[in-house]
Every structure is written in C-alpha cells, then in structure tokens.
Simulated assay, not measured.
Amino acid sequence: MQKVSLTKKILLAITVSIILAYQLLLIYVDDKLASRAFPNLYQSCHKIWSARGLYNQRSEQNAISSMNRAFANGAKGAEVDFHYDIEMNRYIISHNHPERGADGKLVYPEKDGEILTLNKFLARLNDGSHFWLDYKNLDKLTDQQTQTAIERLLEITEQNNIRDRLYIEGSNPIKLSRYTNAGFKTILGIHPLKEKNILASLTMNLYKIGFSYFNISALAMAYGEVDNPIYSQQAIQILGPIPVFLFHVPDDAKTLNQLMAMDKVRTILVGVDQSINRFGINHCKL
C-alpha cells in the first residue's frame, strides 16, 4: 500500500510540474508576443482576396486571365499556388504537383496556353495588387536548394519591384524563416482543430508557442464551419496579437462582416475550391 501511495504522489507531482511549466511557458510566450511588432503587413478595409482568381473552370485557376478578372471586379489581392523547379531554377505557377515526362523532365499544367513562370506572372500583373503565394514544395527542398530558391526569388522580385506586396506561405517554419530573414513577408500555414474538439485550445496554444520562436510574419489557417469554427473566439484570445490570413471562410454574410471588423484578420479567402466574388464586402468607412 505504501508503494502504491508513493507512486501516486510521484505521478501527481510530475503532473503538477508539467502543468505549471506549461502555464509559465504560455505567460512567457504571451509577454514575448505582446512586445513583438508586425510591421508592414497588409492592413486594409478590403480584406477579401481572390483564391486562384475568378475562373469558370478549374483549368483557369491561377491563370493571368482569371487574376485580371478578379482584379477588375474589385479584388485587391489573390492567393496563388507555385512550385520551385530545382532543375530549371524557376518558380512555376501551378496548384498540382508536376509529373515526369517521357524525357524525364517535370511537366507542369499550362495556363492560357503556356507554362507560366512566376517571373512572367508578376511582370504581367504588376499593377499594385497583392499576392499570397502558396509554396507547394517548400518542404521538399534541401538547405542548399532553399538558398538557391531564395536567391532566385530575390532576383525576380527586384526586377518587378513587387517584394513588399508578396506573402509567402509554407508549413515548414525553419525554411520559411529563411525567407523572412531574406526580406520577404511570410505566413506559416497551420492546421488547428475545430472549436468543439476537446484538444482545440491545446493545439492552438502549441502553434502559438511554435510561432513565437521563429521569424515569421503571420499565420494562415482554415476558418472552419459557421457553427464549429477553427478561428473561434477562444482561438482569437489564444493567438493574441498574431496577424492571421484566413482561407476556406464560409460564404456567410454575418461571418464575413464579423471578420471584417477584426484588426488581426488581414486577409480572407471565401469558399472551398470555389470561384466566388465577394470583393464588394468591406469594412471601409463611407
């Protein structure tokens, strides 16, 4: 009986110590984030951007024609998918991963009849618009390949004078931080749990802790459902001052207007794999 009692006391002491350490860590992280600046990030009353442009069919996603259509309808920015091709030392606009052709080279889907490079894309759309660049193969690059990719992106954005209007999203905080260190604005894509999940607050806090230790500009996450959001009131409180880029936001007027009023919400993408024009909804004062 004494051994059982002693074991319980030890387990209780360990549990209390872990909980105390966790709470102290959260206090430290919150204090660290409260004193951290998030300068020069997009902050406008026009928060709704286009997801891959306004398109009539999936093959038009990420095409210059669909982007022009979105901007003509009032979008101030757009989310775009891209890959870095190691062999060509080029960034290619594409959502899908490339396939190997008969000659062994990577084959990308064409956009408006051509393989669309990021260089061409930015040169043809350099009209003051902002771009959320979803980096599809960031995780697959080696350290040396990452450095080469950064140097190439610096060259491209210097030519097009657009660096301040680019936001690079990826899910690898170590590699993403290297882009921040090189002078780019970055977004860490995370996948927290929905509000009704018992572990929702724990996972959101863990993401916050991780974010605080890396040089990254903002977070990106799916909104969730209207009646079971990921970006819930609890999540908003946990994340504190961290700027957020939201995607897969329900096409619900009340939800959109609520998000419009939140300073920490910088950009909104409406719908899931849908071409939706809600660019007229804004938080601008008349």
Rank of each mutant, 00 (worst) to 15 (best):
G128E: 05
S129L: 02
H130I: 00
W132F: 12
L133R: 03
D134L: 02
D139T: 08
D139C: 01
D139E: 11
D139W: 00
D139I: 00
L141I: 08
Q145H: 06
Q145M: 03
Q145L: 03
T146P: 08
T146S: 12
T148I: 08
A149I: 02
I150P: 11
I150L: 07
L153F: 11
L153E: 08
L154K: 15
E155H: 10
E155R: 10
E155L: 05
I156C: 09
I156G: 13
I156W: 03
E158N: 15
E158V: 00
E158A: 08
N161I: 01
N161F: 03
I162S: 14
I162V: 14
R163T: 04
D164A: 11
D164F: 00
R165E: 04
L166S: 09
Y167N: 07
I168L: 15
G170M: 01
P173N: 06
P173A: 03
L176S: 11
L176N: 12
R178A: 06
Y179S: 11
Y179I: 03
Y179G: 12
T180Q: 14
T180P: 04
T180W: 00
A182Y: 04
G183E: 05
G183L: 04
F184H: 09
F184C: 09
F184T: 05
T186I: 03
T186Q: 09
I187E: 11
I187S: 05
I190Y: 09
H191D: 13
H191Y: 08
P192H: 06
L193M: 13
K194R: 15
K194F: 02
K196W: 00
I198K: 15
I198Q: 15
L199C: 07
L199G: 12
S201L: 02
L202E: 07
L202A: 13
T203I: 07
M204K: 12
N205L: 03
L206D: 06
K208F: 00
G210D: 07
G210Y: 00
G210L: 05
F211P: 12
F211I: 04
S212W: 01
S212Q: 07
S217Y: 03
S217A: 07
A218G: 11
L219I: 09
M221I: 07
M221L: 14
A222W: 01
Y223R: 11
Y223P: 13
Y223F: 14
E225N: 14
E225I: 00
V226K: 15
D227Y: 04
N228L: 02
P229K: 11
I230Y: 06
S232G: 09
Q234P: 04
I236V: 09
Q237K: 15
Q237D: 14
I238W: 05
P241K: 10
I242A: 12
I242Y: 08
I242T: 11
P243R: 10
P243V: 01
P243Y: 01
V244C: 08
V244F: 02
F245S: 14
F245K: 10
F247L: 07
F247Q: 13
F247N: 15
F247H: 15
V249T: 15
V249R: 12
P250D: 06
P250S: 06
D251I: 00
T255Q: 10
L256R: 10
L256P: 14
L256K: 11
L256D: 10
N257A: 04
N257M: 08
